[in-house]
Amino acid sequence: MTGALARTVESISGALRAVFAAEQVAAEDGFLQGRDPRVTLLSLGGFALAVMLARTPAVSLGLGVVTVALALLSSVPLRELLARSAVVPAAAAVVVLPQAVLLPGDALASVLGVAVTDAGVAYVVRFTLRVWVGVALLSLLTVTTPFSALVAAMRELRVPVALVWVLAVTYRYLFLFFDELQRLVLARDSRTTDSAGARSEWRDAKRLAGTFLLRTLDRGERVGRGMRARGGARPPSPYGRPRAVDGYDYALSACAVAAVVGAGVVRWLP
């Protein structure tokens, strides 16, 4: 397969691989997998808030240690966690790297006649670390908690039911549409005998996207008609899943609250 359009198949395969790998981890018997999804969502959100409050490297590092500990307790391979959370902080480090010379401070070294300051280096390290912890916490959430459990948690957390249904239906049809798009691209590729020019590829992409979106809308119509044929009055069930909160859930919540309070105290106390 050649051309940008054909790379769509690789993009979809990459996304599906990530989801299937996450599903495997989510099926493990680990600490976060055993928690009530509401508690996981709110606690990891609390840790992420603590990271945003943190202004000292020690606090960010401490939260990083908590993240790694949670990953180990939840049978999340560290390689998997790093693979999912390394790209964004690396890009963030590149973005803030000029601050190593822009921020005033004591000179640590001189690069091409420009002084690298201690305050600048400290900022780059601190910022990269806090972004990494934030991204790693989101990665932990995605690999340990299936989306269906998160949808159920949102419902129990009183997120408007219409939004929860839309989320549930979007997720339900997502992989079907990935498959449909993949088949459209493969079919186009099988009909292409030589490498197409950019103009021709663009024309193909336009036809393909248009056909795909029309099929999507057509499927929406058919689903709607099917629903009406079955009576139409009953909305789809948004994964109701009542669950008891246990001592570990309370412990995780308490740790998250302590992290937020602790990060705030360290930040604002003189």
Partner: peptide, 26 residues
């Protein structure tokens, strides 16, 4: 209406999948 709002998700899934399409640029 309450019953048909969730069907919006079908269109949303289509838009999501369409985002995966790689458009060639110079």
């Amino acid at each position: 209406g309450d019953e048909r709002t969730p069907l919006l998700g079908v269109v949303a899934a289509g838009i999501f999948a369409a985002q995966m399409l790689n458009w060639p640029i110079p």
